[in-house]
Nucleic acid binder design. Sequence first.
DNA 1: ACATTTGTTAACCATTTGGTTAAACTATAT
DNA 2: ATATAGTTTAACCAAATGGTTAACAAATGT
Lengths: 203, 203
Amino acid sequence: MNKIKDTTTETDILNAAKRIFQHKGMVGARMQEIADEAGINKALLHYYFRSKQLLFEAVFKMAFSMLAPQLNEVMNADTSLFEKIRSFSNNYISFVIKHPYLPNFVIQELNRNPEFVQNLIAEKNFPNIVKFKKQVNDKVAEGNIRHIKAEQLFINIMALNIFPFIGAPLLKGFTNVNDITYQQLMEDRKTEVADFIINAIKI
Amino acid sequence: MNKIKDTTTETDILNAAKRIFQHKGMVGARMQEIADEAGINKALLHYYFRSKQLLFEAVFKMAFSMLAPQLNEVMNADTSLFEKIRSFSNNYISFVIKHPYLPNFVIQELNRNPEFVQNLIAEKNFPNIVKFKKQVNDKVAEGNIRHIKAEQLFINIMALNIFPFIGAPLLKGFTNVNDITYQQLMEDRKTEVADFIINAIKI
DNA sequence: ACATTTGTTAACCATTTGGTTAAACTATAT
DNA sequence: ATATAGTTTAACCAAATGGTTAACAAATGT
């Protein structure tokens, strides 16, 4: 009956672990630091999640499951190709502005352990390119867009939307803009990226 | 006179450290592993480089100084804008195919420690966008290309060239292609990326 | 020849780290 | 109230890790 505290410890741990892991990565994170962040004893981490590896995997899958729906939108929505590109770019960039550590975290850990992707693919809701591919190939065949391989277009969409966040420190240095200006550039990209892509492929 | 062995130990260490750091990152790398890789005693690492941090910085700057010339090409060459985009994409992708760990290493460590960019900017040969910016602005003013901010175009060029390597594990999963096919996609990008960009901005 | 500097090693050290244990505390059921 | 199952903690442990030391070996200068 008393639901005031409801989901406490386990979710406290997950949230604390999420913050620490996303900042410092699997190898850089410390169990003690996660315990402190969650306001509990270190032994409790092991009581709930057995090992650092298992705790990490729980956090990673949680992070990935936040990104997956965004990606599914490009691939499996029932809208036109151009509409997909516009809505994905807009939604994804809005989402990442709110969760700036997520993409780098996921990419980094997958580079550290590429085999883990197989693990993710097995899960339900793993994005799949089949439908998107057919849509692109049809549009090309109909002569509605320039000739381009669906995989290349897909990679381009991902690159233009994801990289500006992962490469932010470097790009800020190169372009010599401050944080505020860079944020504004990201805001502008919500529409600019889609325009750029569509111009690139339309006849 | 006898130059057979020439530059041994110090460069042996640097090369070993480069391999280990690029695979495992600063936090994941172990001094013992670097010593083993270099075929020497761990104490020698400290004799030559004092601390893990200093050894890391030496390696990082070496890595960055391999990338910098590639980037300077987009920014400061005396060729036409389209020509720059073509030659950069071709050269950069060829380069990274040979050094696949480099971009991820640099990006990852800069995310871990963004302040370090200031350190790099101070070095000579740090790429600078000024000339590229003027070139883009002129072309826009002349009505030769679509209206686009130089910074956005620059970010797009970087994203399309760099991200496919950093995001490779993820992209391979999404597109469901094997390593060989993915390599072929990268080969194709040497020209496809430039075409894509030029189509996007030309009137 | 020999003294001095430079390079290299084995052994050692203090600290950090992931993980464990046994006891204590809390809630719940009987 | 009291046994039982679940939760939390302080103290502990072994292994790993970056770094140091002191002795030894190899060049180098005189």
